[in-house]
């Protein structure tokens, strides 16, 4: 399922990879990261976004798992990190998947 999302994201963005990175550098709000303070998995995603110069907006959520309905409405689970990329229409959870997604879409080269 997640692999499918990544593949979709890739497919949609490939035709205009060049303009895409330009758009990404000017549109500060395309990527939203739902995160929890000091969550290592979230920091892992932040590191990857920074590495690739992807602007992102952070939304910090509740420590209590049961109170993260905003994340559940997006991804179907309450786990963070969760990432929404409005440019590609991709919404996903799980840091490993997100890192893979960010690297394949914003990795360049």
């Amino acid at each position: 399922m997640t692999a499918l999302l990544v593949a979709k994201g890739l497919r949609r963005s490939r035709p205009d990879d060049v303009t895409m990175s330009q758009t990404a550098s000017t549109d500060d709000t395309a990527v939203t990261l739902y995160r929890l303070q000091a969550c290592p998995f979230c920091e892992r995603v932040v590191r990857t976004l920074k590495e690739h110069g992807v602007p992102y907006q952070s939304r910090f959520v509740e420590t209590d798992h049961s109170e993260r309905d905003v994340v559940k409405r997006l991804t179907g689970t309450r786990v963070v990190p969760a990432l929404v990329d409005e440019r590609t229409g991709v919404t996903m959870a799980e840091s490993g998947n997100i890192v893979e997604y960010v690297e394949s879409v914003y990795g360049g080269a």
């Binding site: 739902y34 907006q57 952070s58 939304r59 910090f60 959520v61 509740e62 309905d69 905003v70």
Partner: peptide
């Protein structure tokens, strides 16, 4: 500044 809603906060 961080603006806080009932569900999250963001700058």
């Amino acid at each position: 500044r961080p603006l806080v809603t009932d569900e999250f906060w963001e700058d």
